[in-house]
């Protein structure tokens, strides 16, 4: 993890937690939203946006102290940041590196845009389910009501 690129924007290493690197520039806040991190949890979190990257030109980085992401959480990040890499940090060193892949079915995280989908009946407290119909370009389908959504529509449908 080298943040000493020309940006000169330095953030200290974390002891234990997660570093999400190679997030497409400008998507860090969306990734935080997927992870449900609002800042009120009290986790020490660093969000770097639009820093230089050899691979992406510009990229965002998120460092979260004190929380290791699960593979389910990691995979949902792929919906908005397919290029992201995840480093789980233990005792200042990279304990595990994870690549993100969109799971075949996504539970929760996404709201169905169809107002008469059963998942939008608040009273029922249903968790949404979307299956991946196509990966390129990304197309998802609500398992309950059949509505299809595209990559462009997705970002507005990521719910807290």
């Amino acid at each position: 993890m080298n943040l000493g690129e020309p940006s000169s924007l330095t953030v200290s290493k974390i002891r234990n937690g997660t570093v999400i690197d190679h997030i497409p520039a400008g998507k860090a806040l969306l990734v935080l939203r997927i992870l449900g991190i609002t800042g009120r949890e009290g986790l020490r979190t660093a969000v770097l946006m639009n820093v230089e990257s050899k691979k992406l030109g510009r990229k965002d980085i998120i460092k979260i102290e004190g929380r290791e992401l699960t593979s389910d959480e990691v995979n949902v990040i792929a919906l908005v940041a397919p290029s992201a890499t995840i480093n789980i940090i233990r005792n200042y060193t990279v304990y595990k590196k994870l690549k993100v892949t969109i799971p075949q079915e996504i539970r929760g995280f996404i709201r169905c845009p169809n107002p008469t989908c059963i998942t939008n009946r608040r009273r029922e407290g249903l968790v949404t389910r979307f299956r991946v119909v196509k990966r390129e370009p990304l197309t998802l389908q609500c398992v309950y009501c059949g509505t299809m959504i595209t990559q462009e529509e997705l970002e507005d449908l990521i719910s807290m």
Binding site: N114, T116, C117, I118, T119, N120, R121, E124, L126, C142, V143, Y144, C145, G146, T147
Partner: peptide, 26 residues
């Protein structure tokens, strides 16, 4: 039911077989 997905939701809850007699427009 007028909501799409109701029969599937019902089938997830019920042990009995559920037959969809129409869920919204779906």
């Amino acid at each position: 039911h007028r909501y799409e997905g109701t029969a599937l939701f019902a089938a997830e809850i019920a042990e009995d077989p559920v037959i969809n007699a129409g869920d919204g427009k779906q």
